[in-house]
Design a protein around this nucleic acid. Structure first.
Lengths: 207, 207
DNA sequence: CCATTTTTGTACCGTATCGCATAAAAATAG
DNA sequence: CTATTTTTATGCGATACGGTACAAAAATGG
């Protein structure tokens, strides 16, 4: 019984590529306004294939939200790594996020903002599972930024101040996502992000 | 030809009260996930009556967005008037907004965040009219906050700094709306708002 | 070459959707 | 009391929705 090769008819599609296509649709239209027919058209699959591969519409969406959050954090971590010092690193990740929100990266082709902030949020009231997913995304962002600040300031900031600053920057970031979706230009958003970092993170730390 | 009294069958409903009920439904569910049947049930009207009074679903929603923005600004203006000094006034309007976002006021009964930020935003990509409406809400908030700062600092701040600070605070506010919808407690949000004001608005102005 | 397994594609089910057509109801005008 | 005006109420109509049943297709195992 060789288990190297799969048994039945081979899939016509690449799962990863298909998930990326699905992500685009949800990212653009949100959950409620997206139909499975649209997804079927974009992916080239038919609904039964979609269902057997990814479950229900809600399953698909939650999968996509996780996928987006993972991608986002890898992408921001990488962007933050290119600078040194608290403020420069924070500015770098905010600028990278703005590029993503305004459609300047290869992950998306248009100014859709943040998938979680801009689409998941709307559904959060009606559905507890969506609300928990949104909360998880927010918390993860808070902790990610706090971790960066903590690491970069090396004990010169009180822990409560670190957490507070991180939340302030996350609030700013989410506000920027909304403006990106409203059509605001990347340059304007980046200028706002830079000055926000200067105000929120103390200069006494050396930068 | 007396024109004092209307001619036909009298309406069974109060237009203002009905609009408030419609606002609740859109506020909770967003645009796409709201059906006219839900609205009909909540208002006690049937669809033809709704249509003849308020137009299509999209018409109704845009009407509601305007209505919400107007209410919001009256409410915040009133809240800001109860304090004196830049920072106290800004803190007062942010706290009032958080009360609204978390369902502590009589305008709404649950933590739905900001209607425009939390529901209009999702539709902004698909529909240019929605995108413009969102942009208008954002701009109005920026200008409102800038006006407050300008008035309260009496020329001690440069105009560009005023506008920048106003946008920073609006970004924070919109981020707070999202957290409210995610279920965060009012107290936590208010603490964040207060410290944000302290960081963003210079202390040199006297407060 | 036939059985088995997995995916694909067509077609369908029941329901929900928005908008409207049409008639009944309730008021005023003369 | 009749004509007119406006709103209400029933119901239709065409489409769209999510999900699934079922058979054909395409691979492997022996």
């Amino acid at each position: 019984m060789k288990t190297g090769t799969k048994r039945g008819r081979p899939r016509k599609f690449d799962e990863d590529e298909t998930l990326d296509q699905i992500m685009q649709v949800f990212w653009k239209n949100g959950y409620a306004a997206t139909s499975l027919d649209q997804i079927a058209e974009v992916t080239g699959l038919n609904r039964p294939s979609l269902y057997s591969a990814f479950g229900s519409k809600k399953d698909m969406y939650l999968t996509i939200v996780d996928r987006f959050a993972d991608r986002m954090h890898i992408y921001l971590r990488e962007a933050g790594g290119k600078a040194t010092g608290v403020r420069p690193r924070l500015k770098a990740i905010l600028a990278a996020a703005i590029d993503l929100y305004t459609g300047q990266t290869e992950l998306n082709g248009a100014p859709y903002g943040c998938l979680a902030i801009s689409t998941l949020q709307t559904e959060a009231v009606q559905d507890a599972e969506f609300r928990e997913a949104l909360d998880a995304v927010i918390t993860r962002m808070d902790k990610g930024i706090a971790s960066l600040i903590r690491h970069e300031t090396q004990g010169s900031m009180a822990e409560t101040d670190i957490k507070e600053a991180a939340q302030h920057l996350a609030l700013i970031l989410h506000g920027l996502s909304i403006r990106a979706r409203a059509g605001e230009a990347p340059g304007v958003l980046k200028a706002l992000a830079e000055s926000a970092v200067d105000k929120i993170v103390p200069a006494s730390t050396g930068n």
